[in-house]
Design a protein around this nucleic acid. Sequence first.
DNA 1: TTGAAAGCGCTAACAG
DNA 2: CTGTTAGCGCTTTCAA
Lengths: 364, 364
Amino acid sequence: MKLLFEIVCMMKIYKFVELSTLAMAKRHVSLKDLAAELGVSVSTVSRALNKHPDISPQLTEKIQRIASERNYTPNPLAMGLLKAQTKMIGVIVPDIVTHFFASVISGIEAVAKEKGYFIVISSSSESLEKEKESVDNLIKSRVEGIIACISQETNEYSHFQKLVDNELPLVFFDRVCEGMQVPSVTVDGHKAVQSIIQHFKDNGCRRIAYISGPNHLNISKNRKEGYLEGLKDCGFDFQPELLVECNLSAEDATLATHQLLNLKNKPDAIFGINDTIAFSAMKEIKRYGYKIPEDIALVGFTDEFHATVVEPSLTSVTHPTFLMGKEAARLFFHSLEKGPAYSEKVILPTDLIIRSSSVRSGII
Amino acid sequence: MKLLFEIVCMMKIYKFVELSTLAMAKRHVSLKDLAAELGVSVSTVSRALNKHPDISPQLTEKIQRIASERNYTPNPLAMGLLKAQTKMIGVIVPDIVTHFFASVISGIEAVAKEKGYFIVISSSSESLEKEKESVDNLIKSRVEGIIACISQETNEYSHFQKLVDNELPLVFFDRVCEGMQVPSVTVDGHKAVQSIIQHFKDNGCRRIAYISGPNHLNISKNRKEGYLEGLKDCGFDFQPELLVECNLSAEDATLATHQLLNLKNKPDAIFGINDTIAFSAMKEIKRYGYKIPEDIALVGFTDEFHATVVEPSLTSVTHPTFLMGKEAARLFFHSLEKGPAYSEKVILPTDLIIRSSSVRSGII
DNA sequence: TTGAAAGCGCTAACAG
DNA sequence: CTGTTAGCGCTTTCAA
């Protein structure tokens, strides 16, 4: 019997060495280690560390001291397994290198951190297929839910519906799946664009063009509505040739601008659905030798950092990006608490920041 | 006895309902669920799914079919607990909204994904204290190691040393802790800056200023060496007043530029340690009414996307950012395999991309 | 060929 | 006040 015991011990030691070599990392100290060192049971240690009143104050103090000396931290995997929660939020964005998304992610992260959650970022590269993969992978990773901004290709929502069916919290920001009953954070694009049109009018513009995004996206729709209504408010007729659609790439925006500049009766103002589009338009307008804003006034949307660096500086609509991320995270945690029925929609205000690209000194 | 059994069953059901309500998510199917459905043991299911030869082909086929029908996916928490590996890589960056870091992260993610790992991003906000917190939090999360770019404040490395002491893989990119024996990916700043100085000379510049970063950072040191050596190569004397240091913020860069432009004998060329600095310098130079490049030629470093959008377009050094991320991840996995002794240093080549901000048409 | 049992780290119900 | 036990989901001996 003693021999058997020794063999078991040896095996354990052997196994430990092997594991440690394999994982190339010293093992974290566990409750068991502490219990062995202190000569008490694992549960006593557990209770002491959780400040359970049943344990004597002295013992509690002693256990906590040793635990902190040994740098004990609870193993999140064990906790996760036990509590059936991973403390992970999946975040799906079209890409991570665009300032807008990076900034929203910062906001999400800030709130998540507070709550002891961390985020797993997955980018869809603006592709529906990759977005579906991302959802699957995140589910496999056992995230507790997902915060997403859909790709520009996304026109069917089965993969997101799957989340809802499984009662996993789902929150959209900026680009949402319309018709799905889930929480979302967006900005009031409609109103923002109306004020842009008014601003153009104030600066003497009469032929106002709009470079829009894919029609199935809510952001395209909202801003288009704002465009049409803004024109009406100003007493301008809608000219179909002044509304061009592009996917959200810089290349396509260049083509769209090209198309506008080649019109027999070219526009004297262009509004791009976001700053990336506006930057491309700016390059192309300059290439044609037109002056901004004298020949063509230009306005973007989202107010990227570089709006102030380009020449002329770009008038744009501020998106409260960091706040948007924070709100999205807030909705996420609400959803986690309140369950599937919860579907609050937050609409954030925007602000038109007027810079050189749209102000004609002769007018104002 | 039967009664007892029923009570136990009821308790289980009760507990399940409670949990499911609490977690607000349907439970994932487990091996146990499959085993119950198939009327075999858990271990048989496990073996079948792992294609263990001991299980009969028919049974294996049947089990695999049911498993995929039920959308079974192994619980990574359970696996992690068992194998003592989390498949998570911690990534620490000064911030996530700068294009450079976002792009490197994309590279890291691409390789990680391939290997079935996912990354947990933590930003230090260029603060040493937050960086230390990040390291601690990531260790607590049981990441298998860390890939980091140190904050600009970081001048002591105890928190990173802790990782090394615990034999956790650690890889630096771009900004490294010099003296630590760990793998790293950097660019050859020395050589790159030498070629910038040569380029300035070719364009008739004689008083070449350099806005540098914090002195303790390797990138500052390398580029400064390149600057000094470049001057020597070109037969220029080093003028101490033309070398100003700034922290890497836009505000400080503005001050530094201000300082240079107020010199009695002002520079006719400025090199900024990165594009953010160069953009600020550009704004300030314009504000003074100087022409770029005629009065002052300007060159940046890192080649951000917006280098082509500013006016004049900015000459800069391309950083292979995505590749840098991929290399960092590659080194990470090597380190994971080969253990603590491994400390390969990768130095990536750069390229000087010449644009309008530094080319004087009269000269070339 | 398959099942039972132990154990990864942790908590909580139960029993002293 | 403290220890024993069971179980979260999984793999892996050992036993049959």
